[in-house]
Design a protein around this nucleic acid. Sequence first.
DNA 1: TGCCGTAATGCAAGCCTTTACATTCTTGCC
DNA 2: GGCAAGAATGTAAAGGCTTGCATTACGGCA
Lengths: 345, 345
Amino acid sequence: MDDRERKLTKTAATLHDVARRAGVSTATVSRCLNSPKQVVEATRAKVMSAVHDLGYSPNFGARVMAAKRTHTIGAIIPTMENAIFARGLQAFQEELRVQGYTLLVASSSYRADLEEEQIRSLVARGADGLLLIGHDRDPAIYEFLDAQHVPSLVTWTTDATAERPSVGFDNRASMRDLARSVIGMGHRQLAVISAEIGSNDRARARVDGVKDAMTEAGLSDLPLPIVETTYSIENGARAFESLMQSAVVPTAVLCGNDVLAVGALRRARELGIDVPVQVSITGFDDIELAQVTVPSLTTVHVPHREMGRRAAQMLVQMVKGAAPVKTVELLAEVCLRASLAPPAR
Amino acid sequence: MDDRERKLTKTAATLHDVARRAGVSTATVSRCLNSPKQVVEATRAKVMSAVHDLGYSPNFGARVMAAKRTHTIGAIIPTMENAIFARGLQAFQEELRVQGYTLLVASSSYRADLEEEQIRSLVARGADGLLLIGHDRDPAIYEFLDAQHVPSLVTWTTDATAERPSVGFDNRASMRDLARSVIGMGHRQLAVISAEIGSNDRARARVDGVKDAMTEAGLSDLPLPIVETTYSIENGARAFESLMQSAVVPTAVLCGNDVLAVGALRRARELGIDVPVQVSITGFDDIELAQVTVPSLTTVHVPHREMGRRAAQMLVQMVKGAAPVKTVELLAEVCLRASLAPPAR
DNA sequence: TGCCGTAATGCAAGCCTTTACATTCTTGCC
DNA sequence: GGCAAGAATGTAAAGGCTTGCATTACGGCA
């Protein structure tokens, strides 16, 4: 008996083994597993019991080879250590699971060269589709993805000028809204602490949003000091300190993300600077942390989870070859909290 | 010309195409790609140029099928929204990349049934090895993994009684150390806010650590109120409030993790309770947040990144079939900060 | 009862790479 | 110049599944 032999040799059971034991063809077994409704109840029962008896589980490589699908989606994010990406990714993975897909993760550390390497790596690893953050990217990468027939979806931003599908929000408009609130309270001496602008379209858009609001308010002649730094509480603290030591001390510091803002808040406390009395500080993202700081942080709420969920749905659609999905823009709203108040000066 | 045909039909180039164009056999091309030193320089140059011209990239399924290796490692964590897992996972992924492996991620939401489903799913998706969190698990799962010849590595904890390899730290001993400090300052009325103990060996070990310290100090007769709740700032806040309303008000509240502790701190402030004067609060994990709160949080520093990095190295070793690696125990040290002080009462 | 249309199942051709083994080429040395 | 040993390359089998197409079974209707 061959089944017995299988057990003894500890070789995994194959479709063939299952078929033989159930007294059907391999095609029928395959159909039981992949599209059960095509198989009549009685047959299916026989097959499933054989599957169970043999502890059969399909060979991944063979399956991929025959079906040309891995049912795997790749995501390349700057870093999971940033809570916003972690949260979005979590939602993305949960929805992917519901859809029967698995998540492949890689990180770029905000470096374009690494991102490209990771994109190629995930495609080589058989990702059926790819989630990317932001639009900034060498066009050659998109050509590569097209050539490989791997659909991709951009998130965390939307861009009217980009013809590629994306799901995100308008970083520039949201930051403009926030800056309007700040200016509306009477602030004139603004300053910005931003993530590196060169390789980060979201950061760039946010800074542009601040400029938009100043222009709107007729303040475009005023200086707008901008400090660029990388993502960390400590860097936010340093940037804040340097801004407060400059010739024209700002009355409001708008930070490109909450983590930088939390750093600024901390340093303000350490320096004995009263927030929001002496200076207002704002963030962007609305991570959980923003409600816990003292004072609580005025920021822009980004629907990270919703974005991740929608991205998963859209990407699966694309992978399944549905009609090309169009860009989805979600709402990111200003959250006014205690760290913003009218200037004392 | 067949190469031309390929281009026209937009079918991806195969090994065969490359071989033909380079005027060698498929075996030689394969060797050029997988073990270049086996091929003489001149031949390799020809082949690589053909690879480049054709934009060839190996078919993942076929490769997996022939090599019986996906070069993919799976990780199943409770959730990426918890910063400690996100950080560990990030380090894990970075090291995996260095080792030439790719990361497959799934989450269990702290649910055993979901975890099992995800384990089977990742194995079915071809994971060469698996990273798991904690020891608590149906033995049948390990049998399954053994049967499938998928090595697994447990992290976030070490357990002398478990014969399976792990890389982590001693949750119980670390919490005992922290509780010793608390008791050493004169606290007698302790209370604990813990993650759900039932399905979480780390949480259980930490609570046991507190009990150990009390027993050591001859305080085992004193009551030790324990509130179990799930991971979130808000839940930490609620648990703290309920503890402070009980008949015997604690002078020190030891939290199972920093997030719960931050919630406790927040509620303390909201209730006008002075920390650490009226009550001390401690956490566990030492997330970045712990240094930003007011007052800063006494906690246990867990080397998440180091753990992730080591885990990746060990798991890759295991997958490559090296000698069975043994358990590695890292050090998790107490960090004394402002939220802990001697009791006023 | 016989025939037809449809549902269920079987057959067998790929899918593309890796690798054990076979063969051919080099090179150094007598 | 001839030979042996080792290096380089070639041959061809194997790997397990999916799926288009062919075949068989079934049920209803005349």
